[in-house]
Design a protein around this nucleic acid. Structure first.
Length: 1043
RNA sequence: GCUCGGAUGGUGGAAUGGUAGACACGCAAGACUUAAAAUCUUGUGACCAUAACGGUUGUGCGGGUUCAAGUCCCGCUCCGAGUACCA
């Protein structure tokens, strides 16, 4: 019988489907193992040969684990929402659901041909209402939650509401968009709508005004990971920054947990590093740099003004400054929009001086105005009239002193204490504070407007306009230094030196505080700016040369730095932070680069938000109203007024008649918790039952591409952590081990057309002519030899082409390029399966090279793998004759088998599938040479082979008389006895160079070996009569004689 | 710029510090065949040399550690991936 792979593969695929061989149920008697592939987006182009690479690897691993006795969950599904289907719908009017269904059918057909062991009864599609119900549900849960920064977990928003009602923001530990301060009274006085607005600041899923990546071509907002170098990843359309009100997920609250969780994961270091960079934790300090005001229009006091108010203020300042009365007052302190004349930060008291008419007689007695009257956050207010102060400043001072003694210490957050008339900056190098020579604001910073003086107004406005017009791409690619002076100055917090405040687009509004203290000597960007605008540069590190470039390294001894002089950089950072905290001009701070995820898309083909609006405020639908199904629309385009496509839907209102949200969720929504749904895909009352979740827990092995390193793999971890907080998922990390398969690139072929002719010249002769290379379909080229007839039929233009051959063949050139239609280098797995069979495809994809490495698809080696399968077949069949016997196996055959058991087990565990295939080849070659036809040996061989080439293994297993599937067999056990060697071949080397080989028995002692070697005839030549200095004997390996 | 990978025959790639190039492709020669395909056998890093043996050299470059380095350390070059005015 011949190896008829086509027949065999169809037969067993049908058998497995019929017997539900791969259906899996929870079984507590067996250990579980969960193997997951990143599910595909079903594109219209179908699968090419690169897609199954990871699926084959995971399939091998799943089958291996199953043979080892694990209960293996190995599901598959589709990430069915996405742009291409929607774009196609816009062009053709065909509903994306139809396109998607067609594509899925095609994918399924292709996948089925390769013989995967998926449990298809668990298939999910993200666009299926039964599935996205749970995506929507998770969203409403996030809407109803806030993040407690002290407990480090999500909590119900009701709890926070209760806290506000009882105690205001006192002692609240919650992640928030904007820091807020209010009392319980203030909270209770707020309208329902106002309260909702406040809560929106705390929700994990919230509506927020944020700078978004707006893509005009696509008409939608994109997440950071969907944009690269200023253009959209899908389609390459320009992206601009725009402020919009959008749904966001408070991913930033989870930054620390996302970072810490990485340590325990079995992921590649590079992937973990990518995530660490994306989270971007940096330790540093916020420093408040005081502003010197010289703008007459300022709301701040101006000492040059000779008003009664200023005289009174000055008089009181003379009385209280320098702690003369035993308490500390700060002057000109900003609290929100209000500039307090004086504050005491220990007790949280504002001292105000009012015009005489302002205070009523009762208030004069009371002195204290209800806090709610002025929005002063947590501060108390103590007021005096100007006349009082001018009449007797020292008595006013005493009154203040007495009052301060009666009030308890205020527990103001540090950030509040540091309000005032300052520019807050974030720095990781507080040690370089004495090198600050100027300040820079981002053009978009709110301070920019405020600090621009009248005479600089025009230049600044022009500059801001110019940066706005630049797209992100231009801003990145334009490396030229640019900026303008604001007209204002800041005061150095330690030296009191004035420092000009500049505005430049090299400072980003979205990171830190949107303002920086520039240290040109030790920051390359500040350096370039200082050089360009001729600003002073103060070196702070001993012996560093900053005449040509800045010295950015964090090393050396501090100079020119007052109290930091003589310290190392590391010591200086610590000391500087201490001093900054002591002086109440700042505090240490950990900053994260990771932003909250923008979660709205102005698209049709995505999950609708389960949100309705009442009085302009959003409310979630109740769980019983889920899923909120995607409504039909007449067109898939935005409306004439620029609203998203869902605004076209008729009657798009909640059950109570309130309007529903019209944007949809982004692509990563549906893929964030899909691995949980596979555990319990048909559950109608929960995303996943507790039983199923506690059995399957999390993914043991996850295989997919690196392109998801900062998108899906961050969101999914975030989403899972949230589900852990609300008790749905039981494991903090969703994917324990992750393997990134490399990309399969295309290997393009070229023909060389002689200019102005219809003649083509073979590769090696092309230099003799003036030629143009033309891509030729790789499917009509074999071993780089062109199939000339096929070429003529391929394109009518070449029907009458002529060829200049070499050795009677036309040899094509080749290059490694991306696999794409336009390069004619796409290889469809179906074609390979038709020609060689699925088992050959599977083996060959593995044989191509290490799984994690990118490599070009090159069919040139596929014959070797196919030949191997035929030879393996040949161990069982001799032409028509089944030739397996039950004779005693030879020892040599047993040794060959057990070498294989050892090697394959090791290689699978280490994902070294390419070397596994080699090992199989070696074993088959050995067994063929030994003419081994022993049933016991061949059975075990088949079990080893079955994860890789399941069809042929099942067929031959069946031929051996087994009635159950091979996947219910047990993985062979290694018997080391068979591997024992009696003799070893030693490489005999002199001074490290191998000269000859000598065989010794395993029992040979070192002196015996030494003597034999030295007296051996071959050694004479290398010893040259000298006595060896030293002889190294490595048991069972090598002898090295040092002469 | 920074971070992380990588560099081994004509090609894909193997090598716990211990005989570099396993396994395969390709190529060459041979067998079978009228012939071709398929299959099988043998050879195949480069250089020198031979009737035969054999020798020299060799893992991107330059150093080092070691009895012994593709492998470890230091310094470069080139290629790939990720990331980027992140203060």
């Amino acid at each position: 019988m011949d190896y008829n792979f086509g027949e065999i593969e169809q037969k067993w695929q049908a058998y497995w489907a019929d017997k539900q061989t791969y259906k899996v149920t929870e079984d507590s008697s067996k250990p579980k193992y969960y193997v997951l592939d990143m599910f595909p987006y079903p594109s219209g182009a179908g699968l090419h040969v690169g897609h199954p690479l990871g699926y084959i690897a995971s399939d091998i691993f799943s089958r291996y684990k199953r043979l080892q006795g694990f209960n293996v969950l190995h599901p598959m599904g589709y990430d069915a929402y996405g742009l291409p289907a929607e774009q196609y719908a816009i062009q053709t009017g065909q509903h994306p659901a139809i396109t998607t269904d067609q594509n899925i059918a095609r994918y399924r057909e292709q996948l089925d041909k390769i013989g995967f062991s998926y449990d298809w009864s668990r298939e999910i599609r993200t666009s299926d209402p039964d599935y996205y119900k749970w995506t929507q549900w998770a969203f409403t849960q996030m809407f109803k939650s806030y993040y407690d920064t002290q407990l480090q977990r999500a909590k119900p928003i009701d709890r926070l509401e209760g806290h506000f009602r009882m105690r205001g923001t006192e002692n609240v530990h919650a992640a928030t968009t904007e820091p807020m301060e209010f009392t319980a009274e203030e909270w209770n006085l707020k309208s329902k709508k106002e309260q909702q607005e406040v809560l929106m600041n705390y929700r994990i899923a919230y509506l927020g005004d944020s700078m978004v990546n707006w893509c005009p071509e696509l008409g939608t907002v994109l997440a950071n990971d969907e944009v690269s170098e200023g253009v959209s990843i899908r389609g390459g359309h320009p992206v601009e920054q725009k402020k919009m009100r959008q749904w966001c997920l408070r991913v930033s609250a989870y930054a620390e947990r996302l970072l810490e969780g990485l340590d325990e994961l079995d992921w590649s270091d590079s992937l973990k590093e990518t995530q660490r960079n994306w989270i971007g934790r940096s330790e540093g300090a916020i420093i408040h740099i005081p502003i010197i005001k010289n703008d007459d229009n300022s709301s701040l006091a101006n000492s040059s003004k000779d008003s009664k108010e200023n005289v009174a203020e000055q008089a009181l300042w003379e009385e209280v400054k320098n702690n003369q009365l035993g308490f500390k007052l700060k002057r000109h302190y900003r609290i929100g929009d209000f500039i307090a004349p004086f504050v005491n930060l220990d007790k949280g008291v504002v001292v105000d001086i009012e015009s005489d008419a302002f205070l009523s007689p009762e208030e004069k007695d009371e002195r204290i105005v209800a806090q709610s009257k002025l929005k002063l956050g947590g501060f108390r207010l103590l007021s005096f009239t100007q006349s009082e102060v001018l009449a007797d400043a020292s008595s006013v001072g005493k009154t203040i002193q007495e009052y301060l003694e009666t009030v308890p210490s205020a527990d103001l957050p540090v950030s509040e204490k540091l309000g005032g008339d300052v520019i807050p900056v974030f720095t990781t190098r507080p040690d370089t504070i004495f090198g600050v020579t100027f300040m820079v604001l981002a053009p978009e910073s709110e301070l920019t407007e405020e600090l621009t003086t009248d005479d600089q107004r025009d230049v600044v406005d022009a500059y801001i306009l110019q940066t706005k017009k630049k797209t992100e791409l231009e801003r990145i690619s334009d490396k030229k230094v640019s900026g303008v002076f604001s007209g204002s100055y800041a005061k150095h917090p330690f030296t009191d030196e004035p420092m000009p405040i500049w505005i430049s687009d090299y400072v980003l509004a979205g990171y830190g505080t949107g303002a920086i203290m520039a240290v040109p000597a030790h920051d390359s960007r500040d350096y370039a700016f200082a050089k360009h605008f001729n600003l002073p540069i103060i070196p702070l590190i001993q012996d560093c040369d900053v005449s040509e470039e800045s010295f950015d390294a964090k090393e050396g001894i501090m100079i020119n730095s007052d109290f930091l002089n003589g310290l190392s950089v590391e010591e200086a950072i610590g000391r500087a932070v201490e001093k900054i905290v002591d002086n109440e001009i700042g505090y240490s701070k950990i900053n994260y680069r990771i932003h909250d995820a923008i979660f709205s898309r102005q698209r049709y083909w995505g999950e609708p938000f389960p949100i309705y609006y009442k009085d302009g405020m959003p409310y979630p639908l109740s769980d019983t109203e889920l899923p909120l199904e995607l409504p039909p629309v007449d067109k898939f385009l935005p409306t004439e007024t620029g609203e998203p496509p869902l605004a076209r839907a008729e009657n798009w209102v909640s059950d109570e008649g309130y309007p529903l949200e019209v944007s949809t969720m982004p692509g990563f929504a549906g893929s964030s918790a899909y691995y949980l749904r596979y555990m319990d895909p048909h559950n109608r009352i929960a995303l996943v039952s507790q039983e199923a979740n506690h059995y399957w827990r999390n993914v043991d092995l996850y295989i997919g591409g690196t392109e998801h390193a900062t998108g899906h793999l961050v969101y999914s971890r975030f989403w899972n952590k949230f589900l852990v907080d609300i008790g749905v998922s039981c494991e903090e990390e969703p994917f324990k081990k992750l393997v990134n398969q490399g990309m399969i690139q295309g290997r393009s072929n070229f023909v060389y057309r002689i200019k102005n002719s219809n003649k083509f010249v073979s590769l090696d002769l092309k230099d003799q002519y003036d030629t143009t290379p033309i891509h030729v379909d790789v499917n009509i080229v074999h071993h780089d030899v062109l199939d000339i007839e096929a070429f003529k039929n391929w394109n009518p233009d070449y029907k009458n082409a002529e060829f200049i051959l070499e050795d009677g063949k036309y040899i094509c050139g080749w290059a490694v390029e991306k696999m794409s239609k336009s390069m004619y280098n796409v290889v469809n797995p179906d074609d390979i399966v038709d020609k060689y069979g699925a088992d050959t495809l599977r083996l060959y994809e593995m044989f191509l090279g290490p799984l994690e490495q990118s490599k070009p698809w090159d069919t040139n080696g596929i014959d070797g793998v196919h030949r191997f399968l035929r030879r393996a077949w040949g161990l069982f069949y001799n032409n028509e004759q089944f030739k397996v016997s039950n004779d005693e196996p030879e020892l040599a055959a047993l040794k060959s088998l057990h070498k294989l058991i050892q090697k394959i087990s090791y290689d699978i565990e280490h994902f070294s599938f390419n070397t596994s295939v080699s090992a199989f080849m070696i074993c088959v070659n050995e067994l063929t040479t030994l003419k081994c036809n022993n049933s016991a040996i061949l059975s075990e061989f088949l079990i080893l082979l079955s994860p890789f080439a399941p069809h042929i293994a099942e067929e031959l297993w069946n031929a051996l008389g087994n009635t159950e599937t091979i996947f219910d067999a047990e993985w062979p056990v290694l018997n080391e006895e068979y591997l024992r060697e009696d003799t070893f071949k030693y490489a005999i080397s002199f001074n490290g160079k191998v000269r000859y080989v000598l065989e010794f028995s395993a029992e040979a002692t070192n002196p015996e070996i030494e003597e034999t070697v030295l007296s051996h005839v071959n050694s004479e030549k290398w010893l040259k009569g000298k006595t060896p200095k030293k002889i190294i004997i490595v048991p069972r390996k090598i002898v090295n004689v040092v002469v």
